[in-house]
Amino acid sequence: MRLLALCHLSFIILLTLYSSHVFADEGIIVSDLSSDVIDQKVTVDCEVQYRLDDRVKEALTNGIEMSFLLEIELRQENLYWLDPLLSQLQREFRVKYHALSKQFVMVEMGSHIERSFPDLYSAFYYQHRIHNAALTNTNELDLKQKYYFRARARLVSENLPLPLRIKSYVSPGWRPSSGWTVWPM
């Protein structure tokens, strides 16, 4: 009986993980991450495709403001369970529909740059490429060690209005995320 319950639980967990993975593939994708050294700094390039669920697009069109966050980390490989974080880059932007102008207003949180786009595609296309984003200085790297990059882009469900936030806890469609994508350095 206990074994059966354990199998049942394992099946549910696997199913949840699988469904989450499927949503990650169809929603937001981080790809083509490459690194370079420019002026003694490790920089990365990558592309992010934001292909959102219709419900999310509908919410945006109805004036719901949404935040998206891109996280890029440089970590050192470790034999132990936790790889130490060497450097981290976060880029967050908010999107909101402006009914009067019929424009989607995008605000980059770090730089507070504000831009308007006539459609969502343009707005997200504007954010689709990260170019020469500096992560760390090369002198902080140990050549004997192995490092890797990992990147994730996601809708920040914590910033959603409360009713949608609760929905996002139970519905994976309301918390689109690319999941962590890993590249060796």
Partner: peptide, 14 residues
């Protein structure tokens, strides 16, 4: 007008 409309639209949606 935009603020009121946006707020109301958001409320209706929510």
């Amino acid at each position: 007008v935009q603020a009121a409309f946006g707020q109301y639209s958001e409320l209706i949606y929510l």
